[in-house]
Nucleic acid binder design. Structure first.
Length: 205
DNA sequence: CCCTGATTCGC
DNA sequence: GCGAATCAGG
């Protein structure tokens, strides 16, 4: 693969969005994160965020960028040597929406309290704890004790994204245990989230 | 261990 | 110019 204009554009865009080099590499395909980082540097757009250039120690503020324009009025007079850089502070958009909540039986695990619905409008129909087998429910509670209690930002492709607690309170985190390959949850939570239809059928309430 | 970006340096 | 290897860090 080579750096076609198109690919470079994607790179620039994603980098500007705060995407990590590895994420960009995946998106582009055919390149490693190292390649992406290398390209980023060659393109000279490595300074992200704070980049609060270590202002020349203290003594001499050295406001002078360097080059002495002297005469010469190359129309470009406007071109600011120092890019905006100010506003953007730390893009890194958290994984968009909260972790994909699978279609099966997810919520209503920990908060035994009846529907709190923090700021929600009518939420889509969600399976109640009643639809989960007592055994599974019990094991889930057990697992929660072992949870690594990861924050949203700490989740990765291989950590269990099962939510625990009430999102509206401090008592909220994600399981975080090693997830089953290809699944968003750990062994225990996969068992509750992905139930065969046969098991779900008329477990009635 | 997972992951980050930064740098180096042979190609 | 490119990117693997490596470094330094979280």
């Amino acid at each position: 693969m080579s750096w076609t204009d198109e690919r470079v554009e994607t790179l620039k865009k994603m980098w500007a969005e705060g995407q990590s080099a590895s994420q960009i590499a995946k998106e582009l395909g055919g390149v490693t994160r190292n390649a992406v980082i290398g390209k980023v540097h060659r393109l000279g757009l490595s300074n992200r965020v704070g980049a609060a250039d270590p202002a020349p120690a203290s003594a001499s503020p050295a406001p002078e960028p360097e080059a002495a324009p002297v005469d010469e009025a190359p129309a470009r007079a406007a071109a600011p040597a120092v890019e905006p850089a100010a506003p953007r502070v730390e893009p890194r958009p958290a994984p968009a929406a909260a972790p994909r909540v699978e279609p099966a039986a997810v919520p209503a695990v920990t908060p035994l309290r009846k529907a709190i619905i923090p700021a929600g409008q009518p939420l889509p129909p969600q399976p109640s704890a009643n639809e989960i087998s007592p055994e599974a429910l019990a094991s889930v509670r057990e697992i929660e004790k072992k949870a690594r209690k990861l924050s949203l930002m700490e989740l990765t492709e291989r950590t269990c994204k099962w939510p625990i607690g009430d999102p509206a309170t401090d008592h909220f985190w994600f399981c975080g245990l090693p997830s089953v390959a290809g699944k968003p949850y750990c062994e225990a939570h996969v068992g509750v989230a992905f139930q065969p239809m046969s098991a779900r059928r008329d477990r009635r309430r």
